[in-house]
Design a protein around this nucleic acid. Sequence first.
DNA 1: AATATCTATCTTGTATACAAAAAAGTTGAC
DNA 2: GTCAACTTTTTTGTATACAAGATAGATATT
Lengths: 218, 218
Amino acid sequence: MEQKRSDIIANQIEELIFDGTFRDGERLDEVQLSERFAVSRTPIREALLRLAQSGLVAHYPRRGVFVRQPGPIELIEMFEVMAELEATCARLAATRISDAAIDELKATNARCNAAVQDSDTERYYRENEQFHAILYRESGNSFLEQECLRLQRRLQPFRRTQLRLRGRLKQSMQEHEQIVSALVEGDGQAASDTIRSHVAVQGEKFHHLMSRLKTAAE
Amino acid sequence: MEQKRSDIIANQIEELIFDGTFRDGERLDEVQLSERFAVSRTPIREALLRLAQSGLVAHYPRRGVFVRQPGPIELIEMFEVMAELEATCARLAATRISDAAIDELKATNARCNAAVQDSDTERYYRENEQFHAILYRESGNSFLEQECLRLQRRLQPFRRTQLRLRGRLKQSMQEHEQIVSALVEGDGQAASDTIRSHVAVQGEKFHHLMSRLKTAAE
DNA sequence: AATATCTATCTTGTATACAAAAAAGTTGAC
DNA sequence: GTCAACTTTTTTGTATACAAGATAGATATT
């Protein structure tokens, strides 16, 4: 399955928004973008329309496309939904997960720990995402899995900003192990509750971070 | 906020898929569509790309766009997710809902009942959707609300096919009242559980319907 | 006759051209 | 000098033109 040029461009623009090249509220000019990527306006437009659908930019007809970063309130809301979706995954997975997948989770956790030891944050993030992705898959609900991956991808840049908080890493790893234990025992309720707070706390932490920044700015 | 022509066309194509004009697996030819709607290929392409993102059609690069109706398994999965999202709405709404919104729910229920009396199915569907939409709103989480509306819209045509089953209407109305009671009492758990089964049963019923159809065909 | 390869046609993906609406700049009136 | 209306420019939305890949058909070979 080959990719279209507009798809590649959409991902690249997404990256440029994530890394701060395009700021919140900034207008994305079609002509400028077409010059930057050395293509015509057509694939640029298709890319922007895709990003508009995913919510990363806002499209005001006949006025243009503007970067639309979620504010603190919306972020908390998104983390709240993510927590619920993942909690559902865990609950379903508790009765459906295979032994092979349990081993996969344990192996991923081990690699996560190793990454912490090596202070390899990049690898930590990757393995952590992998852990959650396995959970999505083991929910046995492909649609749920896809929705989770979509939201995970959307929240990815904001996870990174707040995971650096002291002590969080160790606690996060402990929670991962608690989740695996609950799944092994087939305790859907425990797995569900643990992962709900595990994810929700990220939103909370972000909230605190934001309030502090806001207070400091005043 | 004005609408683009491609947006209008997207909705019209969506309608044509829902009403069966375009069948599952059918290829949607850009040129044919542009003749049908008397526009050029450009707005057609934009509309199709939007539908591809929403999952209603599948887009295989350089090969075309094909209608992609969810099969029974995917439908059950989608209803399962819908049930979980709505359960979350109910749980959150139990602590956040306003007295005015409670009255709104009661009034909507009353109109629902009236529609049943008049055998006005069209109006029943509308009021029923309204009831659920109020719940989404009263979750106090705008992002969750939007996600629910999105999925509700996607499942809408399939709800219609199976709500006609005997006895389901009366039971459905009873469940609505149970939900309101739970919200009045602030019992998030009860509201959540009631609506989860209320929505999930639609997926189950559909499942049974499909198996029967499948058995009959063999 | 069946299959494989080459060729012609069709369809999508991209570039360019044009139309219409919004933004910006200018001129004029008070 | 300020504000408003008109004009110019810019930018989006749509149409058309062109390029390249995919499908289908024809021809040749075994």
